[in-house]
Design a protein around this nucleic acid. Structure first.
Lengths: 211, 211
DNA sequence: ATTATCTATAGATCTATAGATAATGC
DNA sequence: ATTATCTATAGATCTATAGATAATGC
C-alpha cells in the first residue's frame, strides 16, 4: 500500500520506533497519539504496548536517543584537535550548523520536552556532562593561551559555545515565524540557510578577533 | 481559598483568559486542559464554553495577543529614533533582551504553536509585517549610510535582526538544558543572564565594527 | 514452550452541549 | 427579557490490557 515514506521492514519493533520518532518529533509528547504511531508503523495498536509497555516508555527511548545525539553533535563538531584554534572554531560552527540543518526538528523537540518535564532530563544530564566537560576545558585552555599570546580576545568558552549554538539553532527553530515576514530573503530556503551559515561564522570570528 | 496567585476578579471572562494564558503558555495547546483552566479560573467548566465556545477559540485569543506582543516588542526595542545608529542598536538589544527576560515563556510558546499549526499564523502575518517593515527599511537605510561613511561594516538589516534575536532568545529557551551542564555559571540565574546580555551586546557591536 | 500478533473492550479523560436555574437590567 | 451560571451527561478519543490465536524455535 504505502510504499512512499515508511516502507516497513520485517522488524516491527524497529518500525514502531521509527514511526514513534516521527510522531513525537513533529507533535511532541502531549500531541502524539499511540494510535497514529501504530497506524504509521503498519502494526496493530496492541503491538506498541507489547514491545514498549507504555507511551511514556516508548517516548523515553526516543528522547534519550535524541539527547545523546544532540550532545555528540557538539562534541563531534569541535573535536578536530589537529587544527589551529580559529580554524577549529570555524570548522566547528560549520559542522554544528550542518548537523542542525540535517535535523531541524531536533532542538525544538528537546527544548520543549525538557521544559514540559524536567525530570525526564535528570538521568541523561550526567552522561552529557561527562561528554561535554572535556571539550569545554580543552577549548578554554586553548582560548586562554591564544588570548595570552594576544592572538584573540579573552572569552569564557561556555559563553562562546552558547553564542554559536544560539546563532546556529535559532533560525531553524524560528523559520516558520520569520519566513512569511521575510518573503524574498527566505524564498530560497537553501540559499537563506547558506547565508545564515556564513553570517554566523562571520559573527563569531569577529567576536574573537583581537581589535 | 486560593489568595495566592490568581486572585479572581469579579470578571469571570477575564479570569478565564488569565488562567488560559498560564495553562497554554506552560503546556501548549495539546497539553493544555480546559478543565484545568476552568479550575484555575475558579469557574465551572461550562462557563469556559459559554464565553469562548471552544478550546480552539480561547486558544486563538491568547496566541494572537502574544504574537502581537512579540512583534511590538521588537518594534519598541529599536524604535528610538533620536539616538545615533550604534547607540540605538545597543539600546535595542538591551530593551529586547529585557522584554524576553520578563516573558521567558513567550518565544517557546509562539514557535511551537506556529510550527504545530502554521495556518494559525496566516491571519496575523500581515499585521506583523506591516508593523515590522518600516523598522526594517529605516534600519537598513541607516546601516547603509553608516557603511557608506565607513563607520560600520555593511550588513543586511534582516540578518542583523536575526542575529540579535537569536542571541537574546536562545539562552532563555534552552536554559533548562544548559543549566545542569553549566552548574556554576548558571547557579545565580540573574547573574548569568546579566552576563549573557553583555555578551550579546559585545558580539553584535563587534559584528558591526569597522575593522 | 515461547514469542508475536490480533480482536475486543475496559477505563479514564476531555471537549462540548442541553437544559434548568439564578442574577441582572430595563 | 437577557445574561450568567450550574448540574448532568453525551460523545469522542486515547491509553492500556485481557484473552485468544498464530508463528517460531527447539
Amino acid at each position: 500500500m504505502d510504499t512512499t515514506k515508511k516502507r516497513h521492514t520485517d522488524n516491527k519493533e524497529a518500525d514502531i520506533l521509527h514511526a514513534a520518532e516521527r510522531e513525537f518529533l513533529s507533535k511532541g509528547y502531549a500531541g502524539a497519539r499511540t494510535t497514529a504511531i501504530a497506524e504509521a508503523a503498519g502494526v496493530t495498536h496492541a503491538m506498541l504496548h507489547y514491545y514498549f509497555r507504555t507511551k511514556e516508555q516508548l517516548f523515553k527511548r526516543i528522547l534519550d536517543e535524541k539527547l545523546r545525539l544532540m550532545g555528540q553533535s557538539v562534541l563531534a563538531a569541535f573535536g578536530q584537535p589537529e587544527l589551529p584554534l580559529m580554524a577549529r572554531i570555524k570548522d566547528g560552527i560549520e559542522r554544528h550548523f550542518d548537523f542542525i540543518a540535517a535535523n531541524p526538528e531536533l532542538p525544538r523537540f528537546i527544548v520543549n520536552e525538557i521544559f514540559a518535564h524536567p525530570e525526564r532530563y535528570e538521568l541523561m544530564q550526567e552522561n552529557i556532562r561527562v561528554l561535554l566537560n572535556p571539550l569545554q576545558y580543552s577549548l578554554q585552555q586553548e582560548l586562554d593561551e591564544s588570548a595570552a599570546r594576544n592572538d584573540t580576545e579573552p572569552i569564557d568558552a561556555r559563553m562562546l559555545l552558547i553564542d554559536i549554538i544560539s546563532l546556529n539553532v535559532f533560525a531553524f527553530i524560528a523559520f516558520p515565524i520569520i519566513q512569511p515576514l521575510l518573503g524574498d530573503l527566505t524564498a530560497d530556503r537553501e540559499h537563506f540557510f547558506a547565508q545564515r551559515k556564513q553570517e554566523n561564522i562571520e559573527t563569531i570570528m569577529r567576536r574573537l578577533k583581537k581589535l
